[in-house]
Measured scan of single mutants.
Amino acid sequence: NKFNKELQWATWEIFNLPNLNEEQVKAFIDSLRDDPSQSANLLAEAKKLNDAQA
């Protein structure tokens, strides 16, 4: 299933962003679980936040 692979990839990527704190990671993962179809958008937002906090 396409969404499942995207969800797994986005989850792994978010867990490995070095500049997000635990609460931010949890919030993004919760959002992914709530709406897996938004995984690409949520990953992009997480990466933006990660870069901003570098």
Rank of each mutant, 00 (worst) to 15 (best):
N16S: 08
K48Q: 11
Q53E: 04
K2S: 14
N19T: 03
F3Y: 11
L17Q: 03
N50A: 04
A46H: 01
L42S: 02
V25E: 02
L32Q: 01
K5P: 14
P18D: 06
D35Q: 08
V25R: 08
A40M: 13
N41T: 10
K2M: 13
P18T: 12
T11E: 15
Q38A: 15
A10G: 03
N19I: 01
N21P: 02
L42N: 01
E23L: 09
N41Q: 12
N1L: 02
E45I: 10
K48G: 05
S39V: 14
E45D: 07
A54N: 09
F15V: 14
A40K: 13
A54F: 08
N19E: 03
E23W: 12
R33G: 12
A10P: 03
F15R: 14
K5Q: 14
W12M: 14
Q38D: 08
N1T: 04
Q24W: 02
A46D: 00
A46I: 01
E45P: 00
D30T: 10
D35A: 07
S39L: 05
A52N: 08
S37T: 09
D30M: 09
N16I: 07
V25K: 14
E23A: 12
D30W: 04
N1D: 15
K26L: 12
F15T: 15
D34G: 08
D34I: 10
D35F: 07
F3M: 14
K26W: 13
I14T: 02
N16M: 09
D30L: 10
D51E: 09
L43E: 01
Q8A: 15
S37W: 06
E23M: 11
P18R: 05
F3T: 14
W9S: 10
L17H: 02
S39W: 15
A27E: 07
R33V: 14
E22M: 14
A54K: 11
L32G: 01
W9K: 13
A40P: 09
F3K: 13
N4W: 15
P36I: 11
E45R: 05
S31E: 11
Q24D: 04
L20R: 00
A44L: 11
N41G: 09
L20P: 00
V25H: 04
E13L: 12
K26M: 09
V25G: 02
Q53S: 05
E13I: 12
A10R: 02
F15W: 13
Q24E: 04
S37M: 07
F15G: 14
L7G: 03
S31V: 10
A27W: 14
W9M: 14
Q8K: 05
A40D: 08
D30N: 10
F28L: 03
S39F: 06
L43W: 03
A46Q: 01
K2G: 15
